[in-house]
Each structure stands twice: as C-alpha cells, then as structure tokens.
Design a protein around this nucleic acid. Structure first.
Length: 297
DNA sequence: TACCAGGTGGAGT
DNA sequence: ACTCCACATGGT
C-alpha cells in the first residue's frame, strides 16, 4: 500500500451514542457527505478533512483518518461533531415535560446531535436541497465535488472536497447542470457570483447574532426562510433556528393540530413553543416523523 | 401515469 | 398578505 493511502490507528472520542442515533445525526438530512460502509462504520468529508467514524463496543465513538490528514482531522473533528456541547443536557432543557409528543421524539433518538458544519458547505448543500430527497442531494454534491473540488490527498480513494465558493464562481451554470442540479444550478451560480463580489461576507455573517445573520442570508439568490434556517442551524450552531420544511409542516399539523397553517406561522409557533433550542426540537421532530413514515430517506 | 421530493421567486389578486 | 405556478430530475 502506498504511504499516502494509509489510515491512522483508531482513536477514541469522548462520545457515546447508539448506532441508530449516530446514523440519524450523520445521515438524517443535516449533512450530505457521509456514507455508511459495509462494516457499519461511516466515512465523512468536510473542508479539507475526511474521516472514518465507528462505534466500538456498540456505543463508543472512535475515528481514523488518512495519515496525511490526521492532524487536520484531530483538530477539526471535535468542532464538527460539536463535542463541546452536551446534547443530552440540551434536550433535557426542551419543554418535553409539558409536550408528550416531543418527549416521544427525544426518547426515540437519545443523544441526537446537531453538527457544526462549515457555513459555506452547508449553504451549498441546502441550496441544492429544494424539492429533493436526501439521497439525491447527496448524489448532486458528490458530483459537484468530483468534478469541481480538489482531491483531499494524493490518493483518489480519499475522495474530493467540495469546491469553495470562489471556485464555484468560476464554474458555468451549464457545467453545474451537468452535476444534476437542475434548476438549482441557477441559484448556486448566482450565489457564487454574488459572494465573489463580497469577500469576507460569509465570515462576517457567521459572527452576527441570529436575526441579523438570517436577514443577510436571505439576500442570497435561492435562499429563503427554510434554507437560511438550515444553514444557521447546521452550519453555524444557531440552535434557535427553526427550519420549516414539508416534514415539519406535516408533523405540526398531525401532532400539534396546526392543520392548514402556513410555514411562516408554524415557524413562529415553533420558536415560541420550543424556545431558544427550537432547532434541536425541530431535528427531533424531523427524525421521528421520517422514521414513522417508514425510514424512507 | 401521475405525483412528490428538507423551496424559492415572481406574477397576479 | 395570500394563492398559483414554473423550475429539473429521479423515484414510486
């Protein structure tokens, strides 16, 4: 085996969780660059990093990375998994004591986590998400990475990173359509050009308080209420963001009696009812509803 | 075949 | 503010 193809020995993480909860965290619609391997472990890519993640003894998380990337992964993985946050404690702070349905959702996915992904990559992912199922979003992003993103190492098997926004700005809309983006290609292209004229704009946005950050994201072509909230929740750690998609609309109608409510009204209800961690509640509701529908991804 | 998918933006009331 | 609708592509 060539030296650049080698992976490091497994290293323990201060993280324990069930396999099903890990699966829901990595592959439940927050992130689109994780794949389950035959041995049950996961392979993920973000920024300049790729990692294998697995559970030892059923619930103890551990990781391995290409030797060439080991230092970057060791530095970046804790942030990516938001290891500084105790999600069991955060879930306990949700109003499950007075909300029986929320209590059911939390019990079904104990320890469910919200990832802290790179803001720019999260934006790209959710710009591609409009009226698509998760596997198709993953396919689009895999194609974009393969065709327009840099290889992570000298070994092609380690995969490609997603292109940065400045890199995407150099790609034509027609070329993006060849990655099966469909009408989303126009939004991705327009957003790339928009960002290219404003260096540092995303970095500034990431530091702003939630309402200001959201207002700024809404300026981007193809970014509406739902995408802005997903980007802030999964790409900026803003747990107050409450994305309302078709699943949440259905859940709030079926489980909370909000039949016929518009997304904007459901969003307002969610923020008031679930409080400052509404985004975490949202992810619990989302996971539960998809499971109840038959785990169709 | 028709309908739907982690929506958005634009036009017309 | 509200309602319709086009927008690509793939799966059931």
């Amino acid at each position: 085996m060539p030296p650049e193809a080698r992976w490091t020995a497994w290293e323990e993480l201060p993280l324990r969780l069930e396999a099903a909860v890990l699966a829901e965290t990595l592959d439940g619609g927050q992130a689109f660059r994780w794949e389950r391997r035959e041995d049950g472990s996961w392979r993920g890519i973000w920024s300049e990093c790729t990692v294998r993640l697995a559970l030892a003894d059923g619930d103890r998380a551990r990781w391995s990375a290409p030797v060439a990337l080991a230092a970057a992964v060791a530095a970046g993985l804790p942030r990516h998994l938001a290891l500084e946050l105790d999600f069991a404690a955060l879930a306990d702070a949700l109003p499950w004591r007075t909300d029986a349905h929320l209590a059911r959702c939390i019990a079904a996915f104990p320890g469910l986590r919200i990832l802290r992904q790179p803001l720019g990559e999260t934006l790209l992912g959710f710009l591609c998400s409009a009226t698509k199922r998760i596997p198709q979003i993953k396919q689009m992003l895999a194609a974009v990475a393969l065709r327009h993103g840099r290889p992570l190492t000298g070994d092609e098997d380690h995969g490609h990173r997603l292109p940065t926004w400045p890199e995407i700005a150099e790609v034509s809309e027609a070329e993006l359509r060849r990655c099966q983006l469909g009408f989303r290609a126009r939004h991705v292209h327009a957003t790339a050009r928009w960002l290219a004229e404003r260096p540092g704009w995303l970095e500034v946005t990431e530091q702003l308080p939630y309402p200001k950050a959201k207002a700024r994201l809404l300026e981007l072509p193809g970014v509406g209420e739902k995408v802005a909230d997903c980007v802030l929740l999964f790409g900026a750690g803003r747990l107050e963001a409450f994305p309302v998609d078709t699943w949440i609309l259905r859940a709030m109608a079926d489980r909370y009696g909000l039949t016929g409510w518009k997304p904007a009204h459901v969003a307002q209800f969610g923020r008031v009812h679930f409080g400052p961690l509404a985004g975490l509640a949202q992810q619990y509701l989302f996971a539960y509803e998809r499971q109840a529908a038959g785990a169709r991804t």
